[in-house]
Design a protein around this nucleic acid. Structure first.
Lengths: 227, 227
DNA sequence: CCGCAAAGGTGTACGCTGTACGCCTTTGCG
DNA sequence: CGCAAAGGCGTACAGCGTACACCTTTGCGG
């Protein structure tokens, strides 16, 4: 019987659960985010969380999406290079602010809408900057983990953007509306390589050679760091 | 009372434990490697494992070291570029053969002797190819995760090569004997930046700009993949 | 050959995890 | 006002890593 003036405990909702999980992970690391510990912080019994979160994987996924969705928007000015660079630094800042992010992202199996949205935005910068869809595909792989906070190849399991129900045509239509650039890349890639959309060995060697070439140029130029 | 002819169970040793853990992880993934499941495969009680392995972290670490120590030696011929390239492909092959390796490596906090040995070998290729110690440092960071199967920055906790007892001078001597190149890099870096040996922000932007420059060259050249 | 210390294997037990299931309480809407 | 839906609770279970005490086997010095 809570007194009239007493602050009757607010009901839980998904956002409150995720926000508290974020705070807990920031403070004590991802391992400290157990259903019991999180419930205790919300002054609730552990099983209450399951009314707002399907299971622990969904909780972690929600945390990741919350961070990605909160990425700052870069200024819509400058060259593709400046804009991609800024997006990379924004992603890096998120990783500095949330050290658990790397581990959380790598524990996921499917691309969420938030992840696809970020990928689509970066792909859009390249394409608007004059990159072909094909080249955009490969440079996105090359950026990979280092720049995203997540590596495209960590998501071989496919996408997860809502309804898993039939009608592939409708799904495709929805995808090209919400994520036009990544959809274009996927279509282009599967046209070139019908067996599967990505040839991982090719991507690996593509990036490796890009880097080795760049190293050779620096070596030949007598590059050094402290000026 | 085992009969004379019956194959009296062989005693456990660390190598047998690690080998069985490898097999289990290859077959069913890293999550399937629990102390209990591993013990069952070895027809032994779970606690018996602790006579050969300090704890689970030590077990996983031992598995990683076993794989890295088994990296094939590249042919000692060709340019630095060919040799580094081959080492990268060897590391990638290990990851294809052991899909759990990425997760296992990223759960570690300290560099083992096996990891340091691999890093030292790659650093040695650059230095022998005419790279300065300084430049070698930065290109090693740039290769990072993508090419190693592990990212240097995943090991901010320092090294773990045996005795943690005093006498830093003796430790330094031992390090430069066993891992001359990484030691040279660490000394060079701390001379340039006394506060800490790596400026992560610098390394991040270094690699990012290397990649962005490379992308721009490909774009300007009208690069495309299928020839 | 004996004996004894060291090394190896066993059994039990504890605290922690995620979560299935059933019950009760609160909420919001027709 | 009444009732279905949503939210929160309590109990319970299987699995985890591992501390601790105990017994058994091994190998070596006398």
């Amino acid at each position: 019987m809570p007194e009239p003036g007493s602050p009757q405990r607010r009901r839980l909702d998904r956002d409150r659960v995720l926000a508290e999980a974020l705070a807990l992970a920031d403070a004590d690391g991802l391992d400290a985010v157990s259903m019991r510990a999180l419930a205790a912080r919300l002054e609730v019994v552990p099983m209450a969380l399951y009314k707002h979160v399907a299971d622990k994987e969904d909780l972690i996924g929600g945390m990741v999406d919350a961070v990605i969705a909160g990425y700052a928007r870069p200024a819509a000015t400058g060259t593709w290079r400046e804009r991609v660079r800024e997006r990379a630094l924004i992603a890096r800042a998120a990783h500095l602010a949330h050290p658990w992010l790397r581990e959380a992202i790598q524990s996921r199996r499917r691309r969420s809408a938030a992840v696809l949205g970020h990928m689509d935005a970066v792909a859009g910068e390249f394409i608007a900057g004059g990159f072909s869809v094909d080249l955009t595909h490969h440079v996105m792989h090359a950026l990979g983990n280092r720049v995203w906070g997540f590596s495209p190849e960590a998501f071989d399991g496919g996408d997860d953007v809502g309804q898993p129900d039939g009608d592939p045509a409708a799904l495709l239509r929805m995808m090209s509306e919400r994520f036009p650039h990544v959809t274009a890349i996927a279509l282009d890639a599967s046209a070139r390589n019908p067996s599967g959309s990505c040839d991982e060995q090719f991507e690996f060697e593509f990036t490796l050679d890009l880097l080795l070439d760049a190293f050779e140029r620096l070596r030949a130029a007598g590059w050094e760091s402290s000026g």
